[in-house]
Design a protein around this nucleic acid. Structure first.
Lengths: 245, 245
DNA sequence: CGAGTTATTGAGGCTGGTCAAATAACGTGG
DNA sequence: CCACGTTATTTGACCAGCCTCAATAACTCG
């Protein structure tokens, strides 16, 4: 179910106000964005965009988790991005979606009509500079992920994903992540496998393996406890200097 | 050998003038860029940047081919980007190189001192918008590559790389690539393996296999003849791929 | 509680990796 | 121009890691 909200909450109260594409805007600039925005909600599992869809808007993810993925005609699928609150969907100057985007939890987005948004990007350095920062962050993340996909073992892949989620889901973004951490996986085993370039069986086996090695505890299908994040990090194959964001 | 050129060619005569980060600038903006630029050359095989290097400049690649790569401490290496003329090296607001950059042919770059360049990015939409375009293009390319790394078979990977090179090396860029094509590989087997997430032995074996299947001919270490590009494309696993890159 | 979905576990096979050796191409100096 | 040493590439034998197919278990939600 897709819903378009008619009530227009004020940007001042927006939970992603200080991280999203609008984060550097104030006063008049913010007001212009406010004029062209509207909200949409998607239920878990809903497609947000299919490759090839015409794009009449871009958007910021407000709530929930979505994935960007690509697939081959025989069904092989690779996730190429994870969208969390404040992440940006779409691309100025691009009228057609190049990838599939799917809500994996209930999702709420803040849409901007594309044409007026593109004009704002052109004329507002506070927007284009923020967008540049965000896309370069994503490029760095994509390149990190290429190392994982091309060169890491299944165990290293799983450990890397868990560490990534522990960091990104941690209540205190940016701050030091505590050694003992717990979180709920926002992804099914299948989604994880598509993210890591593995099969879901291998994901399940490696999780069990990490569990029996005492590096994690599993509770239910989604709950994960990491007693010592440092130990888990040492399984990722990374040099600890890669502690970016 | 790294050389810093003292003579300052005029931007008007620059071969990448209309594709690089400066492509939207004219007159005064171009002059400001010209003030903070200098040239450097690197021999084939030379490192241009090591991860962790302090960055006092950003740059545009003028001539040659370079790679962006990442490696793990045990030596596993993954190429995460290929830099061709007009591509941009570095990132405003980033003082440390996040990846290794290596010249694989002789390379010439146009450097801009970082601090003044960052100020120009802030104040010049013609620069930041172009930079945004370029980084989004790279992001799209990285995401295409993630599908290859995560989900394609060795044979599909090799076929994809050959098709990519055939397209890019083809004298007629952009135009329809002829069905019969010949080119010289700009990469060693090892470089290919690092690009594809394979071992060099597997690369060699798959090339031999494609040869014995009549899809390609090999002459010397680098020469490749593709009698029918369409047949090779059908081995890449791609759908209606074509028009990108 | 029961049907459907999601996850775990097992057995066996195949792809691609590892180790090793042979061959081919390249470059240098005589 | 050739001999020789070096490097790049090919090929072989073997094997490990991950995938496939299949059955069972756990969880979710009406």
């Amino acid at each position: 179910m897709i819903r378009t909200t008619t009530t227009m909450p004020n940007c001042k109260d927006c939970p992603i106000r200080h991280n999203a594409v609008c984060s550097k805007c104030e006063g008049d600039e913010l007001r212009k964005l406010e004029e062209i925005k509207y909200y949409r909600s998607y239920d878990a599992g809903q497609p947000i965009l299919w490759r090839g869809d015409p794009l009449d808007h871009v958007a910021s993810l407000i709530e929930g988790v979505a994935t960007i993925s690509q697939s081959m005609e025989d069904g092989r699928t690779q996730m190429v991005g994870l969208l969390l609150p404040s992440d940006f969907i779409g691309r100025p100057g691009r009228g057609v979606a190049p990838f599939d985007v799917t809500a994996i939890t209930d999702v709420k987005v803040c849409c901007f009509r594309r044409k007026p948004f593109e004009q704002l990007v052109q004329s507002t350095p506070n927007i284009s500079n923020r967008l540049l920062e965000m896309s370069m962050d994503e490029l760095d993340a994509a390149r990190e992920w290429m190392l994982l996909l091309g060169r890491k073992t299944a165990r290293e892949k799983i450990a890397s994903l868990l560490v990534l989620i522990a960091r990104r889901m941690s209540p205190k973004r940016g701050a030091q992540v505590p050694s003992h951490t717990e979180f709920n996986l926002p992804l099914t085993r299948e989604a994880m496998s598509n993210y890591l370039g593995l099969t879901l069986e291998t994901v399940s086996r490696q999780l069990s393996q990490l569990k029996s090695d005492g590096l994690i505890e599993l509770s239910g299908q989604r709950g994960v406890v990491v007693p010592d994040l440092g130990l888990l990090i040492s399984e990722t194959g990374e040099t600890w200097d890669a502690a970016l964001a």
